[in-house]
Computed example of a mutant assay.
Amino acid sequence: MRNLVLALLIGSALLSCKKKTTDSDCEHKICTEEFRSIVLKFVDNKALAAEVKDFTVINQRTGEKVYANSAMAANLTKGSYIVVDDGNTKSLSEEGDDLKITGTFEKTGQTKSAIIKVTGGICACHINKVSGPEQIAFD
């Protein structure tokens, strides 16, 4: 009886182990060549584009700052900021990560934040926005 219990414990421990996914597990995946990015717009109380300072994006799961690779090359239009792009895919989880976006309105000094949920993963071809606002409005 004791051997049966021991065998069941060992068997369940082995079955509960999950293999960690690596880049080599993804080599047969076919992806499109599009490049996705998620843009968030800051607006003032009149719904006009608002320039912000101290713009940050923090991954709430890891506590690390997120830098979109394409953000350095382009600041689309006034008040629009690239939050994350396909260059960040591997640093995001398959289940989705909450990204806290914060900015301070230059004219008033008011700071606002919002959270968007974005999926990625080691084998993901692209990021995908799950939830969250399209813009942040200042008072």
Rank of each mutant, 00 (worst) to 15 (best):
33 E>I: 00
82 I>G: 02
69 N>S: 08
69 N>Q: 06
112 K>P: 04
28 H>S: 14
32 T>R: 10
91 S>A: 12
98 D>V: 03
50 A>L: 08
116 I>T: 02
117 K>L: 01
23 D>V: 11
67 Y>L: 09
53 K>A: 13
92 L>Q: 04
83 V>S: 01
103 G>L: 07
48 L>W: 08
37 S>E: 09
13 A>Y: 14
47 A>I: 06
37 S>K: 08
38 I>E: 09
96 G>E: 06
100 K>Q: 12
60 Q>N: 13
14 L>K: 03
22 T>V: 15
92 L>K: 03
34 E>C: 06
86 D>W: 02
24 S>A: 15
27 E>R: 14
76 L>I: 14
66 V>L: 11
36 R>E: 07
33 E>T: 05
106 E>Y: 10
81 Y>K: 01
73 A>C: 10
74 A>V: 13
70 S>Y: 05
39 V>F: 05
34 E>N: 11
119 T>P: 03
73 A>V: 08
70 S>A: 10
80 S>P: 04
49 A>R: 12
31 C>W: 10
112 K>Q: 08
111 T>F: 07
109 G>F: 07
49 A>N: 14
70 S>N: 06
112 K>I: 07
24 S>H: 11
89 T>N: 04
12 S>L: 15
114 A>V: 08
47 A>D: 13
49 A>W: 08
45 N>T: 09
29 K>I: 14
91 S>E: 12
49 A>F: 11
52 V>M: 04
66 V>I: 13
38 I>L: 06
79 G>A: 08
39 V>G: 04
28 H>I: 09
69 N>Y: 06
109 G>P: 02
37 S>M: 07
23 D>P: 15
93 S>T: 14
90 K>N: 10
24 S>W: 10
119 T>N: 08
93 S>C: 07
120 G>A: 04
60 Q>M: 14
54 D>M: 09
12 S>R: 02
62 T>Q: 09
116 I>H: 00
105 F>M: 08
57 V>N: 01
70 S>V: 11
116 I>L: 05
96 G>Y: 03
107 K>E: 04
94 E>N: 15
57 V>E: 01
84 V>Q: 01
117 K>A: 02
46 K>Y: 11
100 K>M: 12
118 V>A: 05
28 H>P: 07
83 V>Y: 00
43 V>R: 04
37 S>I: 05
63 G>Q: 00
16 S>C: 15
12 S>P: 05
40 L>H: 00
67 Y>P: 00
31 C>R: 10
71 A>D: 08
79 G>T: 04
95 E>M: 13
68 A>E: 05
70 S>W: 03
17 C>Q: 15
63 G>M: 02
89 T>P: 01
31 C>E: 10
97 D>E: 09
106 E>Q: 14
18 K>C: 15
116 I>F: 03
57 V>Q: 01
30 I>C: 06
89 T>A: 09
60 Q>T: 12
